[in-house]
Design a protein around this nucleic acid. Sequence first.
RNA 1: CUAAGGACCCAUCG
Length: 280
Amino acid sequence: VCTFNTVIKMYGRAGKHKEAMQVLHILRSAGFEPDVVTYTSLMQMFSNGENFKAAIGQFSEMQRVGCKPNVKTYSLAVNIYARAGLPSEAGRILRQMQEAGFVPNAVTWTSLVKAYSKQGMVEDACSCFAEMQRCGCTPDVQTYSLAVDIYRRAGRPSDAEQTLRRMQEAGFTPDAVTWSFLVMAYSKQGMAEKAGSCFEEMQKSGCKPEGPLLNAVMTAYVQAALPTHAATLFRRMQCKGVVPNRACFNTLIYAFSKNGQFEDAKALRLQMIEAGFKPN
RNA sequence: CUAAGGACCCAUCG
């Protein structure tokens, strides 16, 4: 079964749903029964393909045939409902999991926090984050990052920052993703100076500024009508060896165009191509 | 090392 599961996983990663399902049939005709890993792999495959109905279909099917989901399976089911924008269903799965005698872990809770925050349900997301801790589950970097994201979505940058500070007090080091949520929280409110100081603090703390984060800071400057700051930062970071990604180029080309700097925009487009990115 | 959670762009859909 392990062998078949591996093959299913590989087809799943390649997005080859039909082939994966064919392997499932071969598995059965070879006299084996799919196990919890088989079903979880299939759920993951459909979830990655954004076919949430099929993903949950596998979850139901396994239970129908008496294959018991485990913590990973339940966590994935919560995440599927989170991504599908169905937070109450996600919460239902977590309760169902507890009733079945399983203890939700950081992965499970993080998915549920995301389910609520994605739908803009700030209060529910926050109480979920609190309940997780009441249940004795310690949030990790990813959970804290999503907690910061709750306030970013809600347009509350100071609460976002407070969450990041609490995370540090709890002994965790914010990573590039955590910082990017905070930067975007400030960016959304036009608070470009705040975004810039986050960027500096982040670098001092030893976190490497990767493309997405650089883009978040540049976007903050552009939003605040400071395209020149964005351009300066872009060049300075390039000299420092930070590799800009496609998003950085797009942001800066947009900034130049909006500012009437068409020659700069055109030059950057060429530079973008040289860097191996195709303009769309 | 058979399966689960977080950011930007791209893609997709509206």
